[in-house]
Amino acid sequence: MLHIKCPHCGMRSQNEFSYGGDASVKRPQLGSEVSDQDWDNFVYNRKSLRGKHWELWQHLSGCRQWIKVERDTATHEIFKTLKASEEIS
């Protein structure tokens, strides 16, 4: 079970969180023109990386904040966590 540092609450066990997918995906602006290709990439296409990966988690049973977590998908090492408002560096 992972131990995730919530930027708001501190170190908490994985069972308090839910996984939310790739954090680097940017939703196209509402009302903007989006090509089929770009829309497919946004909705469906993910890289499924092996190694360092920025992902979203929600601290569901805690502060309910969505956070960004940089995790190695192979080793589970967590390098950094950010608040929703903080940009991935």
Binding site: S18, G20, R27, L56, Q58, L60, R64, Q65, W66, A84, S85
Partner: peptide
Amino acid sequence: LSHLEYYLQLVWP
């Protein structure tokens, strides 16, 4: 609720 929180916190802060 999670869906609304997702958009409010991450997409339209």
